[in-house]
């Protein structure tokens, strides 16, 4: 018997990528999964940080999906390379800061590169025509195939019958007749196929697979870029955007204020990199000050922090301020609720 052909499948953890990989397995193809970590992936970070959720630890969706499929998964860190995709998207952004079309081209391109380096034959994705307004349209499918470099070695089993035959189909590595013609946003065919394969549990990301589709997150990232005057970021920056309340009382500094114990602990890990404020006379949050602050700014920051402590109605709250390993204590009057303008919230 001939050695089976090998496909590398993009696995997000969602249903479509699972079905695409399963369809290949059914045809006797050797499948391995690949998943890219951009730093923006919705991987339950808020969940991992928040104390109340830690009792039921989150699993990685892609790993879980791969295990259900019985395939290996390779998770690749693309944090640095992704910066160019996000900051200079040739095809622009979707509803928020999501550069979906460039992102898909990039990921398929990386999978194609992995395929050639590891002696695999083709790339598989769970893309469905008409499913997503930006990246999954009939006219953008060829764009992804072309710009990724994968060309006709890119097979989308779920919509293959609506697309020109790819090389795996033409060469008979896979049987085109057993592929699908899914189209549009209707999820019924996928549900039926999932049921037929006994797949009952899968991740259902709302809106998309990453934080860049989230309006609040996009606003915080835009703020970060504006203040820096450039679209630069590091992994720590984008992680911190997922945590706490973000308030910008002055253009030159913002405060990241923990909302509960888990977030406070997480922020604590950054105390050496930022000025750190913490109420000590009353129970209250840890706050990081990102930016520059003179004495009056520190007073203001302490008053904001005190506002979110249990001493919010007390005449004075003592706040410990640590800056470059030097700790001072400030006795401040907490800001009243109406002294925190809505516009400070990022």
């Amino acid at each position: 018997m001939a050695t089976p052909r090998k496909a590398v499948a993009l696995i997000s953890g969602g249903l479509d990528s699972m079905l695409a990989a399963r369809t290949m397995l059914e045809q006797g193809i050797h499948v391995e999964g690949i998943n890219f970590f951009t730093g923006f992936c919705v991987e339950g970070h808020t969940h991992a940080i928040r104390a109340k959720d830690r009792a039921r630890p989150k699993r990685n969706n892609a790993l879980w999906a791969a295990e259900q499929l019985g395939i290996r998964l390779h998770i690749i860190d693309v944090i640095d390379e992704y910066k160019d995709v996000l900051t200079k998207p040739k095809h622009g952004y979707g509803a928020n800061l999501n550069p979906c079309l460039d992102c898909k081209g990039f990921m398929v391109g990386k999978a194609y590169q992995w395929m050639t380096e590891n002696g695999f034959d083709f790339v598989v994705t769970g893309e469905v025509i008409g499913q997503r307004p930006m990246s999954q349209r009939k006219d953008t499918m060829p764009v992804i195939a072309r710009e990724s470099g994968a060309g006709d070695l890119l097979l989308r089993p779920l919509s293959a019958k609506l697309l020109p035959p790819t090389r795996p189909e033409r060469e008979g590595w896979v049987d085109r007749d057993k592929l699908f013609d899914f189209n549009g946003r209707n999820r019924k065919p996928q549900m039926a196929l999932a049921a037929a394969h006994g797949i009952t549990e899968y991740a259902q990301p709302a809106g998309g697979c990453c934080f860049l589709t989230d309006a609040t997150y996009a606003r915080k990232l835009t703020d970060l870029w504006q203040v820096r005057g450039s679209k630069e970021y590091e992994l720590d920056d984008i992680m911190l955007l997922k945590v706490g309340r973000h308030l910008r009382p002055r253009p030159h500094f913002k405060l990241i204020i923990g909302r509960e114990e888990g977030e406070n602990n997480f922020l604590e890990g950054y105390r050496r990199q930022f000025t750190c404020l913490r109420p000590i006379s009353h129970h209250g949050p840890l706050a990081l000050l990102d930016g520059t602050a003179d004495e009056s700014d520190l007073q203001l920051a302490a008053r904001v922090t005190a506002r979110f402590s249990q001493g919010r109605n007390a005449p004075l709250v003592q706040v410990e301020v640590t800056r470059q390993s030097v700790t001072t204590r400030l006795d401040v009057q907490p800001l009243a609720e109406d002294e925190i303008p809505h516009a400070w919230y990022i």
Binding site: G44, A48, R54, P57, K58, R59, N60, L63, W64, A66, E67, I71, R72, L73, I75
Partner: peptide
């Protein structure tokens, strides 16, 4: 990250 106690064993099993 407590999630790692699920994820690392899962990754190990498949590899």
């Amino acid at each position: 990250d407590p999630g790692a106690t699920n994820d690392i064993p899962a990754w190990c099993r498949m590899h």
